[in-house]
Design a binder for these strands. Structure first.
Lengths: 239, 239
DNA sequence: GTCCAATGGTCTACCGACGACCCATTGACT
DNA sequence: AGTCAATGGGTCGTCGGTAGACCATTGGAC
């Protein structure tokens, strides 16, 4: 007899080839605000080492992103690959089509995100943060509050990622980044309202305040509410 | 400028080759109790498809596990690859050596596990479970309570995995399986005491009861306490 | 003006994983 | 006793990814 959990453990060992995975990662860096427009990516040799792919593969991925309009490369010392100031607009594919593609994946991602991000908020509040970490959190919070509508998603993502990061768990941060990317496509299909943004910013402030005040329960609670808001929005919009 | 979260998003795209990953997965299935001693693994062709590796690679992995004493293969119809009744003992490497190898990885894994498993308990209690799911949970609970000392870890893992599974999130289940494997090595280095097991079983019962009673808060709380117990044990033993 | 270090751009030989195919074995069913 | 479907066992050509070396370009330092 094979337990029902078998499809979790017998899932594909790799999803896609190194090239595709690398493209995905670079997109993650850009779309989640890890590298901002104008920023330079690490040098090819360094980046290839960190991603554990050959330089050839990395270059192919960069080439793909160049053609898609995300980055541009310059040669010479002090050269490098830079994120474009004007990024391609996410194509507004019909939300329902995307939803159908995701299928059960939507609930899958929402449940996972809930566990990861509420857990992150609680863990972050449980830690004694360094001054640099506190400054980074507040910086991300302020940037997000000041972000233009078209940039909002990116700054929002970076803030959430920053919260995951100050837990000190690299794995948690990585998992959070992954699940956010999965939800990105759907979120892009939903119109962003000023009203929602204002509310979102208020919640962000509460979350960060609770983390800085070392209040795990409040941090978790605030994050929970924040997430349930977008979850309801998503499910409702796609219903 | 590159944000501090860069090492989460620029982490290796793949850890090890397909062969190694496949071995790791099969070990996961065995050590986490997804396939029990005497059970048959899925047929090579099926399993290769599900794992998304070539049959050649899968067979090499199986061969490795055969030599390590985990499985045995029989040919012919109604043949297959079976998990041995007597599994190899985990080698009791000095705990402190392992701890040093893991390094910050211990905290990393503990924090992630906390988020995933408390989140899973809460999510499971929030769902309306089918009769089959409820039966499976109770079955795993009873099996774990009745498990011999040498089998305890396996049944314990299967129960925790079952809780993750009834959330309905495959990703959450997969992540839980992964992080448990990472902690496995360390747990194997710690002597298992009857007293600890009894306590653990009590907590398991409380957790499952809360899930079946659709009480998310209680489920989370109980899981939190359960996990913090082993976390303290781990950190203390390796201090 | 010259130098040179760091960067992107290119090529080549090699290898591991893959896919597809066929063989060998087994035991339930007829 | 014969059949045959399902399974493990094995082989071969192909291709994508890798490693490593080398070339081309740029702009600051001297």
């Amino acid at each position: 007899m094979v337990a029902p959990a078998d499809d979790a453990v017998f899932r594909p060992v790799r999803t896609g080839n190194p090239f595709e995975e690398t493209v995905e990662r670079l997109l993650q860096a850009i779309k989640l605000g890890v590298v901002m427009p104008g920023d330079r990516l690490p040098a090819e040799r360094d980046l290839a080492t960190r991603l554990n792919v050959s330089r050839v593969t990395l270059r192919e991925a960069i080439h793909a992103l160049t053609e898609a309009g995300y980055v541009e490369s310059r040669r010479g010392r002090y050269g490098g690959t830079f994120v474009n100031e004007r990024l391609p607009k996410p194509r507004r594919t019909a939300a329902k089509r995307i939803a159908r593609e995701l299928g059960d994946g939507l609930d899958d991602a929402l449940i996972l995100r809930d566990a990861l991000e509420t857990g992150a908020a609680e863990a972050a509040a449980n830690r004694a943060l360094s001054e640099a970490e506190e400054a980074h959190l507040e910086r991300c919070l302020a940037d997000t509050a000041a972000a233009k509508l078209t940039d909002y998603r990116r700054f929002d993502s970076r803030l959430h990622l920053a919260i995951a990061e100050v837990t000190g768990s690299a794995s948690l941060t990585a998992a959070t980044a992954d699940v956010r990317m999965r939800l990105n496509e759907l979120l892009d299909a939903i119109p962003l309202l000023e009203r929602n943004i204002a509310h979102s910013n208020d919640q962000h402030a509460v979350i960060v305040a609770a983390i800085l005040a070392d209040d795990p329960e409040a941090a978790r609670q605030a994050m929970q509410e924040h997430l349930s808001g977008t979850a309801v929005l998503l499910r409702g919009f796609l219903a």
